[in-house]
Structure formats: C-alpha cells, structure tokens
Design a protein around this nucleic acid. Structure first.
Lengths: 255, 255
DNA sequence: CGCCGACTTGACACCAATCAAGATAAGTGG
DNA sequence: CCACTTATCTTGATTGGTGTCAAGTCGGCG
C-alpha cells in the first residue's frame, strides 16, 4: 500500500454530519431504506460530534481486517466498500457491499469478524465505540435506528442465502447487476451504462463461484440480450425489464 | 392442521418470564451468546408482562407466513422453530433454526418476510409489536439487548453465506450436525445420540440442495467414521473431534 | 506504444440435480 | 401390540452445471 492512500481530513464538527439514514422500527424496503427518512438534524449533529472523516484514495485499501481489535464503527459516505470473510485455506467470501449511509464494523468479543476494504475511492465516517456507546445510552432514538439498520442488513443477508442456495450463477449475476444498477453513483440511467469497478474475482467471491464462471455468465447474459460488455468493467444494460424480472421474482414478499 | 394443535395456555404474568438472553453490545459468541448473560429479572418481568405463551403440540405447524401482516415478535422457550422463505416457483430455503432464547418475526413494511414453523413440539412467547415498541422506548437497556440479538443473527447469517458460497454438501452437512449437537435438548452427550427431528427435505432446503444429496452426504460421513445412522433421524456421533474440525476451521476468526 | 495483468474461451474432470426403483421407517387402524 | 399402509429414505444411473487448468486475447497503465 502506498503512503497517503488514506487521509484523515477532519474531525467532523456539527453541521458537517455523517449521513446515517434509517426508517422506523419494522419498516424499511431492502433498497429504499437507505435513502428515506433521514435522521433528525440533531441526531446527525450528535453523531457528527464523535465522528472522524477518512478519505480513501483508491479501491482495495483495507479499512480493518478480520480478527483485529475492534474500536470503531464505520459508515460509508461516498464510494463503496466490500465486506468479506476469509477461511484458513485462503478462500474468500464477499458478504456484502456497503454504500452511502450503510454502517459496518460488527465485532464479536472485541474483534472484527469480517474484513472491510474499499471497492472504490471512498469517504468513510469513523465512530469510536466507547463514545458511541455512551451516546446510545443517552439517545434511545439513535439506538432504534441502529437496530433498524441491523435488521435491514439481516434481511439482505437472508436474501443472499436464498440466492446462493437456490439459484444458478446466471441468475445470481443478474441479481448483482440489478442491485448495482440501483446506485446512481455508478449507473447512468441515460446511457444505461454501469461502472462495475469490481474485478471478475471480486464478483466471483461474492457469488460463490470462480472468475471463469462469472465471465461465462456475462457471456450468456449478453447472448440473451440483457446487457452488453463495453469493457470488462463497464456494461450497458440493454433489457432492464428482463433483468428486473430475474431479480424481483424472489425479492418481493408474496403478500 | 388438526384442531388444538396450538393452545394459548396463559397470559404470562410477572415471575413467569420468557427467557430472552443476550450479551453486551459488541460481544456474543455465535453459540454461547444464547446461554450467558441473562437479562436482569426486572427486564424479564417487563417483557413477561406483555407476553402470551403459546403451546405448539407437534412439528410442522405454521406460526406465521411470509407476507402476512406482522403484529407480533416471537421468542422460543422450548423446542425449536425453522424460518424459511419461498419463491414463486415453489422452492423453499430454510434460513435458520431458532432455539431457546432466540427471537424471530422480523418484518418489512408491516409484513413478515419469512415463514416460521415449528420443527418440534414447542413453547413460544409472543409479544405484541405495539406494546413492545412502547416498552422499548422506556427501556434503553432492553433495546441494546435486541440490537445485540440482531447482530448475532446477522453474524450467523453471514456464516451461512460462507457455507453456501464456499463448501461442498459434505461439509455443510457436517456443520449442521455439529450445530445441532450443541443443543442438549436433542443431543445426549453420554450416548452421543442426536435426534435430528428433521426430514431429509428440510435438511436439503437448509443446505441448498436435494434430499438425495443429503442422504449421500450422510452415507459419506458414515463411511468416514464420523457418525452412524441408527435410524434416518437419530444418529450417533462417532468422531466428535473430526466433526468439530470440519466446522470450526472457518467459524473462528483468524485472530 | 508496449507491457502486464485481467479477462475470455475451450477442454476436461468432478460435483450436483433429477429420475427411477427398491428398502426402510413411521403412522394408522384394527 | 401387531399388521398394514404410506411416506420417507437410500442407492443407482444419467444428465447438466460447476470447478479447474490452460492458452490466447484484450484492456489499462505507464
């Protein structure tokens, strides 16, 4: 890693709050919970008062590693982050991607259980756990928001369990592409262009397969007219309808 | 379903509390968090004051179904429960099993996202969400415990993602058998006998495979001297050491 | 423009899904 | 409690999807 890949740009002061967002208790659409129902500005300010802002200048920088002592909770402001777990044989499973407003850094017995690395240049807010705990004791509302976030992430994890347990690579990849296309930061709705900014290996480690199979699945999605590869990491979504159908069938609840 | 499969035996009063257990904030071993650090007796009593106790007389009874209006949160007292999700093609993925002290019934937009059924005869505590919300606002400590539980379940879900993404059926089944062997309710440490009380289909739906593959995996585990099938649903664990190794390699953090 | 790493595609071996049939267990009623 | 009936389980055979090795191509970066 180069020097100055990470820069602590400032101690966040009031009025420059981190953007942590949530919905009330048992609500929260899998996707939309991230962009609705901002915390009140007081809550924002209180969080801001204990936050440090970190600038990560490129993708692939470790924020923390599995097993390290956990002293902070993190929130994504700009860019995105991948969370992964390694086993002793060196295999890696990417568990989730975190975007604007998402929290990460869960621990167990004081150690991080996952590794977090930037998946793009990113701005990250960092909260010392000690001070966060004190703040939470004083602010039940903030606690509810954290709980809501945790439940949301749990639902997402369960969705991923269904994907890995039930679907072929083709559909899992379609699902990933759909999810990514919901982020304006990397998807241009006008040109239908999506900047994946992930290697085939990263995608494979998320889908639970190999880079070769990911390449083949892309090739099949292209054959079926769902997308086109402009470069390996920039794709054009040709049939958003069909893509959404591959995804939404099993995302929605049968009400 | 027969009449009287479920019986509301009582409105729980103080002193007869549900047993909801948790550990402090960022702690909690994947397995042990369930049996340490009981809530204070006051907290127990407060939860009890809004709980109803339900007796389910056999396995396979629906507690609630995916898509239904969510009005309750549930906790397991005796027996165990399976949580699953269905897609439109009729496939089913079992997401988790819930045991003594585990909470279930997460919702989204007021609807349950999963289905819950008994996996054995069971005693279940039921909390009305409305009253629970009021209680939580008054009791920040209780909130922290809920948050801890949610984070614990999130870690378990992530563990399942790793299993589904990285391991063959053989190892996934070994992992399930190991997990089940940690529950004295169904595992007799003296005789080394484990009462699975799940069909091959249930196991398959949890491991993301078919009943036939589960039978084959059992056959291989038996060939390798790890276990013996006394009946299809009662197995004897012959080599707990080897079983634990198949599981624990990837459960522990690389500290 | 050239190099290096990432991506794609083919070939092959292996694991998994499915169909089918026979064996075994569990549930039912006498 | 036993015999019967039904469902579950096990195993074999076959097909299809996936993991892996290898080689060639392409894109991004210096």
């Amino acid at each position: 890693m180069k020097v100055n890949d990470v820069k602590v740009i400032r101690r966040a002061g009031p009025g420059k709050g981190p953007v942590v967002r949530a919905r009330p208790f048992d609500a929260g659409a899998d996707r939309r919970s991230r962009i609705d129902n901002l915390l009140s500005s007081e809550e924002q300010a209180k969080l801001a008062s204990i936050a440090t802002v970190l600038e990560y200048k490129r993708a692939g920088i470790a924020i923390f590693s599995q097993g390290e002592d956990a002293h902070f909770l993190y929130a994504v402001d700009k860019g995105f982050v991948k969370s992964s777990r390694h086993d002793e044989e060196g295999h890696r499973q990417i568990l989730a991607f975190m975007w604007h407003g998402d929290l990460f850094g869960i621990a167990e017995h004081g150690h991080y259980v996952n590794t977090a690395e930037t998946a793009s240049p990113a701005t990250i807010y960092r909260f010392p756990l000690q001070r966060l705990r004190r703040l939470l004791n004083a602010e039940p509302q903030l606690q509810i928001h954290l709980l809501t976030k945790a439940l949301h992430d749990l639902r997402l994890a369960q969705r991923q369990i269904v994907a890995l347990g039930q679907f072929h690579i083709y559909r899992r990849l379609a699902s990933l592409v759909f999810d990514f296309s919901q982020h304006p930061e990397i998807y241009d709705a006008k040109t239908h262009r999506l900047a994946l900014s992930l290697s085939r290996t990263d995608i494979a480690d998320y889908l639970g397969t190999s880079p070769e199979l990911v390449a083949r699945a892309f090739s099949l999605l292209e054959r079926d007219g769902i997308l086109r590869r402009l470069t390996p990491r920039i794709i054009e979504i040709a049939d958003a309808q069909q893509l959404a159908e591959l995804q939404q069938k099993w995302t929605r609840n049968g009400q």
